[in-house]
Amino acid sequence: MAIMTIATLHCYQCDHDFPLNMYQPIEKISCPYCDTDVDQSMIEPIRNAWAQVSGLNQTFHKHEMESEEPRFGLNVHDEEVHLDIDDIDNETE
Rank of each mutant, 00 (worst) to 15 (best):
M1S: 14
A2M: 11
M4D: 06
T5M: 08
A7F: 12
A7Y: 12
A7D: 11
A7M: 14
A7H: 10
T8D: 07
T8V: 12
T8R: 10
T8C: 04
L9Q: 00
Y12I: 08
Y12S: 06
Q13M: 07
Q13S: 12
C14W: 05
C14E: 07
D15I: 00
D15W: 06
D15H: 14
D17V: 02
F18E: 04
L20H: 05
L20M: 03
N21D: 15
N21H: 13
Y23M: 05
Q24Y: 06
P25T: 07
P25N: 12
I26T: 03
E27Y: 08
E27S: 14
E27I: 00
E27A: 13
I29S: 03
I29Q: 04
I29T: 00
I29C: 04
I29F: 05
I29A: 02
S30M: 00
S30V: 07
S30F: 05
C31N: 03
C31W: 02
P32F: 05
P32T: 06
D35F: 09
D35W: 00
D35V: 04
T36C: 10
D37L: 10
V38S: 05
V38D: 02
V38E: 03
D39L: 09
Q40N: 09
Q40V: 11
Q40M: 09
S41F: 03
S41D: 10
M42S: 00
M42G: 07
I43K: 03
I43F: 05
E44F: 06
E44M: 12
I46Y: 01
I46A: 04
I46N: 02
I46C: 00
R47C: 04
R47Q: 15
R47A: 06
N48I: 03
N48Y: 02
N48S: 11
A49R: 10
A49Q: 12
W50F: 12
A51I: 07
V53A: 15
V53Y: 04
S54W: 06
S54N: 15
S54K: 01
G55F: 02
G55R: 08
G55Y: 03
G55D: 10
L56G: 01
N57M: 11
N57L: 14
N57F: 10
N57S: 09
T59C: 00
F60C: 10
H61K: 12
H61P: 01
H63T: 15
H63P: 04
E64H: 15
E64Y: 13
E64Q: 13
E64D: 05
M65E: 15
E66S: 10
S67R: 06
P70A: 13
P70L: 06
R71E: 15
R71M: 15
G73K: 12
G73V: 07
L74K: 02
L74I: 15
V76P: 02
H77G: 10
D78Q: 14
E80L: 13
V81N: 04
H82G: 05
H82C: 09
H82Q: 06
L83T: 09
L83S: 06
D84Q: 05
D84P: 05
D86H: 10
D86M: 01
D86S: 02
D87K: 08
I88C: 00
I88K: 08
I88H: 04
D89M: 07
D89G: 09
D89A: 08
D89E: 12
N90V: 03
T92S: 11
T92L: 14
E93R: 07
E93C: 08
E93G: 13
